[in-house]
Design a protein around this nucleic acid. Structure first.
Lengths: 124, 124
DNA sequence: CTGAATCCTGAACGATACTG
DNA sequence: CAGTATCGTTCAGGATTCAG
């Protein structure tokens, strides 16, 4: 992911390609990326995800998992037991997104201090 | 003033990475990433950005540019002319984020078709 | 041209209760 | 345990207006 050749996004993201934009909106949001990130570690149950993804509500988690499942990024496995057991894991394409997501997480870690001081400077 | 109107956040406080989480929230959103992406091409004026970032409102563009400027990812250059002229460009750390952002854009394009069919399958 | 401020509506979100 | 539904609140975000 070094200086990748500037892809001609003009045609894909900027123009009237509402689908690409919609997909982008689906994944470029806080919870979706955090879920992808957490699921990158291992397969997890709903309740586990609830704990791992700090601060997410039951509803938001469900909602985002549905969207990710619909987009084919997360696989949902239901075990017909009592009580119910549902496991989530990344699909192959989902793993690809994880890589991109990792880049952002790594960047955040690396620039943590810089941003913090930049904010302090700006707020004066 | 949109700064942290949150009250409890017990979980967040317990974790040392609440700042990282906040930074993550700043950049893991549709407009911020699109702006970074567009500014990756070249320095631009406010009005140019308005056209390039398809669908962004005047207000949202201003708001997001302020956040990015505060985080030190975008530099804002004001030319004291009449009429005013303001140019925006990525800073060095901002360029780093651009790389990560590119990964997501590239991924979106590569999985465009897959996601589209995955949705069709899910919606039945 | 840039951008701040105000108003207002619809979407996001949390809490709660209920089902299988 | 996992998921859905409803309700009430908060807030994001669009339109508009005014200022520099």
């Amino acid at each position: 992911m070094v200086t990748t050749p500037r892809v001609p996004k003009d045609a894909d993201l900027r123009r009237a390609d509402s689908l690409a934009r919609e997909i982008f909106s689906d994944i470029a949001n806080k919870w979706a990326l955090l879920i992808i990130d957490v699921l990158g570690k291992r397969t997890m149950r709903f309740s586990e995800l609830r704990k791992e993804v700090e601060g997410v509500s039951h509803k938001m988690l469900t909602q985002n998992l549905r969207t990710l499942e619909r987009d084919g990024l997360v696989h949902r496995e239901v075990y017909p037991t009592v009580p119910p057991r549902v496991e989530y894991r990344l699909t192959e394409p989902g793993l690809g997104l994880l890589t991109a997501c990792d880049a952002i997480c790594a960047w955040t870690q690396q620039n943590y201090t810089y941003i913090n001081s930049a904010r302090a400077r700006f707020d004066t």
